[in-house]
Amino acid sequence: MARSVLVTGGNRGIGKAIAEAFAAEGDSVAVTYRSGEPPEGFLGVRCDVTDADDVDRAFAEVEEAQGPVEVLVANAGITKDTLLLRMSDDDWSAVLDTNLTGSFRVAKRAAKGMLRLRRGRIVLVSSVVGLLGSAGQVNYAASKSGLVGMARSIARELGSRSITANVVAPGFVETEMTAVLPEEKKAEYLAQIPLGRYASVEEVASTVVWLASPGAAYITGAVIPVDGGLGMGH
């Protein structure tokens, strides 16, 4: 049976691959995007996750088109990388407001419908950086680490209503963001990854789809790494 799925930041990279993977399962998939154009074949809803009213409007649009959201993937995120002593309050606030508070806003709004349905899957897209740390990414790492505490708290609050909340923590993935790295930086990163390669966006997407599948019904509050072994032990 087709479910109503919403992927935030679903117009490119990992988010787009996640949306495509759910669509391939036969689900009704909506994606939010802040700029540019939505990918073809999906219900595209413009939404700024830093604005609670905008989040509410976007959810209403999705609910009208394909019913209450049964699977939420909170993927929208930004970076503003710089060293701690150069990081402005704005650099910090913008990243936390989008990546962490934005995920809170969409999870809270999705939970309303899920509670009425007495079922639901929430997947928060974090990063290996949230567990390992990364020089020049104090803001990003803090935002991605915060998602773990959020998911585990949601898991405890909503578990009795058959709502699960889990985290996927990708490592280095072949996207537009990694494509622009200098060659020596790419080689340095690859040397740290036991599998010796970057992930494909499809590998991250298949993990997200699995967490929302019947086979993962008894998994909640988990952090699933998709990082080629980079962050093992964390």
Rank of each mutant, 00 (worst) to 15 (best):
M1T: 14
R3G: 05
L6Q: 02
L6C: 05
V7F: 04
G9C: 04
R12P: 01
G13I: 09
I14P: 09
E20G: 02
A21G: 03
A30N: 03
T32N: 07
P38S: 04
P39R: 02
G41E: 05
L43E: 03
V45L: 06
V49P: 03
D53R: 05
D53Y: 00
R57N: 12
F59A: 00
E64G: 14
G67N: 05
G67D: 05
G67I: 04
A74C: 10
N75L: 05
I78F: 09
I78M: 12
D81F: 12
T82C: 15
M87A: 08
D90V: 08
D90E: 13
W92Y: 12
W92S: 11
S93F: 00
V95W: 07
V95G: 08
L96W: 07
L100V: 05
L100C: 05
T101W: 08
F104W: 15
R105P: 02
A107C: 15
K108T: 11
A111Y: 00
K112A: 14
G113W: 12
G113K: 10
R116Q: 09
L117S: 10
R119S: 14
I122D: 05
I122Y: 07
I122F: 11
V123L: 13
G130L: 08
S134W: 13
V138M: 13
V138R: 03
S143C: 10
S143F: 06
K144F: 10
S145E: 14
L147W: 04
V148C: 06
G149W: 10
A151E: 01
R152E: 13
A155P: 01
A155V: 06
A155C: 08
E157K: 02
E157Q: 10
S160R: 14
S160Q: 13
S162K: 04
T164N: 03
N166K: 03
V167H: 08
A169F: 02
V173W: 04
T175G: 04
A179P: 09
L181K: 01
P182L: 06
P182G: 03
K185Q: 15
K186R: 15
K186W: 10
A187S: 08
P194Y: 13
R197Y: 15
A199R: 11
S200A: 14
V201L: 12
E202C: 12
E203D: 12
V204N: 09
A205M: 12
A205Y: 02
V209Y: 06
A216L: 10
A217Y: 00
A217F: 02
Y218G: 04
T220W: 08
G221M: 07
G221V: 06
V226S: 05
G229P: 08
G229M: 14
G233L: 15
G233K: 12
H234S: 12
H234K: 14
